[in-house]
Design a protein around this nucleic acid. Structure first.
Lengths: 220, 220
DNA sequence: CGTTTCATTGAGTGCGATCAAGCCGTGTGG
DNA sequence: CCACACGGCTTGATCGCACTCAATGAAACG
């Protein structure tokens, strides 16, 4: 981490604030690469950095003391993560695939960011987006059947992929831990949706949306 | 709402930023009273205001198109709410009891808040707190039994009350919609926890914590 | 080729939902 | 004062969905 220190502190002295939410974070942080399944930060680790995915996919997970695993979210290129924190991270973050992330010093928000309003607004915007996604996730877990959960998961994956041919970066266990189901139930629902002609799986990681309206109807 | 306009725009010109998160929002907004069950804002309503509870309790609810109701959270005196929004509120907010809230114009965050960093930080802090609570709620709904859900609900109510004698502001249906259970299951778990000697209900709204360790052990 | 890991399928169980009474505190009117 | 209705809570009986346990299948890897 000492590698990051000088670079980050220099970049925060920048005097010309970028105009908008969509401005490039590149000049603020350092790029780091992570191998598949490598840990980016740990649960309960102090939260002095946050991150943006450059390439690859990241998942955040939470382990409870009785051994149950819960997945907070999946982050794709462009997504900001690591804001799930008071003083320490409630989740750990792991590289789901090989990936590259941009690392930004978070302490700047608490102290130095008074001098950089654009950065502060970027962080707030990202936090809002995170909150929205978490709330949507909440309603998914709260009052939906296993079939509806899996259907909406696949639909969102399709929306992210921007087409009807989707390759999932995660396996069944990750889907299960995200949806609050067991791996067996996920598998059964996938099979069921396929037998209903809603989706068609080519292999266990990639599928085609056949009847999108049917999928959308399940979100209620 | 035009009542608020002048007052708010004036207050945002304030030159002396308060030192910290806990500073008084009073000078920013207008007080409004709401009667029990009165709506404070509606689901899908445009989100140009946010709120702080002065007295009483507020709940946020979401209705799905198939009629299921979900409660986002309960807000007590001092809590900020109404940040659950992109362009529009995903939840509606209702007065659970008679209450008074402070109303603050939200648009200032997007435009004028460049001139008031303390306000911006207050909002970000509140958003973070909301995110934390939502994530905790998420893990509660995801992988916990009905008994654990009710136990942790009662424990949090006790923590909020700051003692072992608690009066709940909400009824069983609200508890059920918050925990993703039916009213019957909530009732059964309450009865069970009581028969285990963990809590003791005086009437259906107020109870005493008898064995706090047992309650805490259920959070895993 | 064996080993390991992950996904699928099957059989049986249990937890929480559903449906249906009953209970109790509160309010209302005779 | 009692009779009655009403809403919120509790309790009981039953059902079905998702979990558990177990076996099999299918890739990936050394």
């Amino acid at each position: 981490m000492s590698l990051l220190g000088p670079q980050l502190s220099r970049s925060f002295q920048s005097a010309s604030p970028p105009p908008d939410d969509d401005h490039d974070l590149g000049r603020f942080g350092a790029r780091m690469g992570f191998a598949r399944n490598e840990e980016i930060y740990a649960q309960d680790e102090e939260a002095d950095l946050f991150y943006r995915v450059v390439s690859g996919v990241v998942r955040t997970t939470h382990l409870t003391s009785d051994g149950r695993r819960h997945i907070g979210d999946f982050y794709y290129a462009g997504d900001v993560f690591g804001l799930d924190a008071g003083k320490t991270h409630r989740f750990s973050a792991e590289a789901l695939t090989d990936c590259v992330v941009l690392v930004v010093r978070r302490a700047a928000v608490g102290r130095a960011a008074d001098t950089d309003i654009a950065l502060q607004r970027l962080i707030w915007t990202a936090t809002c987006r995170e909150l929205e996604r978490t709330q949507a996730h909440l309603m998914l877990l709260g009052r939906r059947s296993a079939c509806e959960k899996v259907a909406s998961f696949l639909l969102e994956a399709a929306n992210r992929a921007g087409g009807d041919l989707v390759t999932l970066p995660m396996g069944r266990q990750d889907m299960a831990d995200y949806l609050g189901l067991t791996i067996e139930t996920v598998s059964r629902m996938v099979t069921q949706l396929q037998s209903e002609g809603v989706v068609r799986f080519l292999d266990c990681r990639s599928f085609k949306v056949i009847r999108r309206p049917a999928l959308e109807a399940m979100l209620a």
